[in-house]
Amino acid sequence: MSEPLTLDLLDKDGAIREALDEGMQSTRAQLFRRSIIGGGTFLAGGLLIGGLPKIALGAPSAAQDVEILNFALLLEYLESEFYIRAVDGGALNGNARLLNFATVVRDHEVAHVNFLQNALGSAANPKPTFDFKDTTTNAAKFAATSIVLEDTGVAAYNGQGPRLTKGTLAAAGQIVSVEARHAAWIRHIVAGPGYPNAPADYPAPAVLEPALTKAQVEAAVGQTGFITG
């Protein structure tokens, strides 16, 4: 790859990176905030621990689960299409590690789509149409975009976790760690030998993973212009 791989290739106005960085910086700065438990009693509700974003909580319900799972499904539709097109397009054929990453992750995201569609049944939203521009036809842009998509996916799932009923949380829990593995994997590929400027902790840049609200994720995805209908 001749181009340096950075978020700049995708995140033109920095909206995505800003949201993620904010999450990571605030957790570092506030990590050691004194216990919320105080004299030994737990406080309930949407409280902050170590600067994690305060997630607005309505009571979990089956109806809310449907809304959240459709939100997750939208992201999985996006990711699966992105990887399908990147693999099919051939732009990655010159890089074995990238091609392997894209192929394996494509299959995972397709499995996630199938799982969520089955879980939602007739309530599943249909797949939108996408235009990934050159992020699926240019290897460097593909890699940079993968980082953003995977990081954002983890933050999206973690943002919704506390809003889910426990059964659905257990299912989502099986997906979110795989997305985190994807994120670390592509970051590791990008920051491998030949990229001496990558920070040492590039695969796992934060002590605590940031979470994003649904609105933040939707704004970030909207910024990409990937969803066209």
Binding site: F42, L43, A44, G50, L52, G161, P162, K166, V176, A184
Partner: peptide
């Protein structure tokens, strides 16, 4: 899923994802 407190759940999910990154990294 067994945690009662939502704040603790958020913290657990935050750590969980980081451990997954660690696992992916060392595996690679």
């Amino acid at each position: 899923p067994r945690l009662k407190s939502n704040a603790l759940l958020a913290a657990a999910l935050a750590i969980h994802a980081v451990e997954a990154r660690h696992a992916s990294w060392i595996r690679d």
